[in-house]
């Protein structure tokens, strides 16, 4: 960015305004809101299996997800912005996940954490009767994080990717 020289001390208001450029920026309000949304993602307190422990670790002392504004875990779906699907979704749990997703107010996002929520992971085999093979069979997923379980760093990376995606403002689930 080009350095602008400081205005002279005796400059008139008109000259000052010319130098500073327009005071009023015109943009879509949505973009401004997206900047705010991306920086304060509130995840749902919702663990399914092993990955939930790594999700907790990501929120705890060493990794501290709160640095990125996403450490405020909400126990109620009605207050949450992002659903981190941490663990295997069993078929018995599937309808519950869908119900929780429906309870979350828009705009909302979902992160599929770990192999199980991507495609069934280690529990996928012909004849598997107990699990939903992939979270995207139930709800739309924005970011996939591979691993079994992914390390907390990977989850934080996934959250940052989701931030980028939100700031880009191209996609919304309504």
């Amino acid at each position: 960015m080009k350095e602008t020289p400081p205005p002279p001390a005796n400059a008139t208001t008109e000259e000052l305004l010319t130098q500073l450029g327009p005071l009023v920026h015109l943009d879509v309000l949505e973009n401004l809101l997206n900047q705010a949304r991306a920086r304060s993602l509130w995840p749902l307190t919702f663990g399914l299996a092993c990955c939930a422990i790594e999700m907790m670790a990501a929120g705890a002392s060493r990794f501290d997800m709160d640095r990125f504004g996403s450490g405020v875990f909400r126990p109620s779906a009605r207050q949450a912005d992002v659903m981190i699907l941490a663990g295997t979704i069993s078929r018995k749990m599937g309808p519950v996940v869908k119900a929780l997703w429906d309870q979350m107010p828009s705009p909302k996002w979902a992160i599929a954490m770990g192999g199980c929520t991507i495609d069934g992971g280690p529990f996928k085999y012909p004849g598997q009767y107990a699990i939903v093979e992939g979270a995207d069979k139930i709800i739309p997923v924005d970011v996939y994080i591979p691993g079994c379980p992914p390390r907390p760093e990977a989850l934080i990376n996934g959250l940052l990717m989701l931030e980028q995606k939100i700031k880009a403002g191209k996609k919304f689930h309504v």
Binding site: S90, R91, K92, G94, P126, G127, Y129, A130
Partner: peptide, 20 residues
């Protein structure tokens, strides 16, 4: 098992045989 399930999964004739 899930609600409304009509199978008993650990029976040997349930699901796919190991070789298949």
């Amino acid at each position: 098992t899930e609600e409304g399930a009509d199978y008993h999964p650990l029976l040997k004739d349930f699901g796919v045989a190991p070789a298949a």
